[in-house]
Design a binder for these strands. Structure first.
Length: 233
DNA sequence: TAGGCCATCTGGTCCT
DNA sequence: AGGACCAGATGGCCTA
């Protein structure tokens, strides 16, 4: 089957649409797709579309593979069938010209298999890292809820970080307010800023940033993050 | 059935 | 030279 460029561009467009919609209203969107408790801490994770990494793999699948790699599904690994060698190129022809394909030395072929295996491993590591990220960001971790997509994971993590920064800043303001009577001249005691404020907190005004400033800064953040904000820009 | 998401293969580029 | 990283292409699975 030759999907062709139209299919590819269509997929890319769809993803860009998702990106745009998420950047404008991420929480609402994600909440709808992944459960109403998207921002409640749940116990455990790995809802997972069990479809991926099914654990059933061709017995002869790249014996040089690591154990982790063998978790991957044995999907159309052209490593296994020598008749089809890789996808077509952007012009519709084979990625390897017909003559290259027939004359391909065995050595070159094994080199290719090694490269493929490395790339697979790399992608598995990347997915492991994403799983780790999913496990620490708050969304509905339950078997009945679909696992966050990669893009949703990244966007939700970003929003979560921004939200935490905001919460930290507000806490600092409260502490500063409570301490006003004792230390009028020092806005924030050093002990209350143990994480390197400049690095963590994105506002130049540090503890004095207004809700308006934050709402302006987080133009890509979902509006629901700032429901409390009565200080509209 | 179309669209979303994903794993995999592949060639190109950059870095060590 | 070899490995890491990246993006394009392809096809499978799942869901609305």
């Amino acid at each position: 089957m030759n999907v062709g460029e139209e299919g590819i561009f269509h997929g890319a467009d769809a993803r860009m649409d998702e990106l745009k919609s998420i950047s404008n209203d991420a929480l609402i969107d994600l909440t709808q797709r992944y459960g109403q408790s998207a921002f409640s801490f749940g116990a455990g994770h790995g809802a997972g579309s069990a479809g991926r990494y099914p654990g059933s793999v061709g017995a002869d699948f790249l014996t040089s593979q690591t154990a982790k790699s063998t978790e991957s599904g044995g999907e159309h690994t052209s490593d296994e069938d020598d008749d089809s060698f890789g996808p077509v190129d952007s012009k519709g022809g084979p990625a390897f010209g017909a003559d290259k394909r027939t004359k391909k030395p065995k050595e070159q072929r094994s080199l290719r298999l090694n490269i493929n295996a490395r790339e697979r491993r790399r992608m598995h590591d990347l997915n492991d890292a994403l799983d780790g990220l999913r496990s620490v960001i708050p969304y509905a971790h339950s078997p009945s809820v679909r696992k966050l997509s990669k893009i949703a994971t990244l966007l939700l993590a970003k929003n979560y970080i921004l939200m935490q920064a905001q919460a930290l800043e507000e806490m600092r303001r409260v502490v500063a307010y409570l301490n006003q009577g004792q230390t009028l001249t020092s806005p924030i005691p050093a002990a209350l800023a143990p994480f390197g404020q400049a690095a963590v907190y994105p506002f130049t005004g540090t503890a004095l940033a207004t809700c308006a400033e934050k709402c302006t800064t987080y133009t890509g953040a979902p509006s629901s993050l700032f429901k409390h904000c009565s200080d509209k820009p």
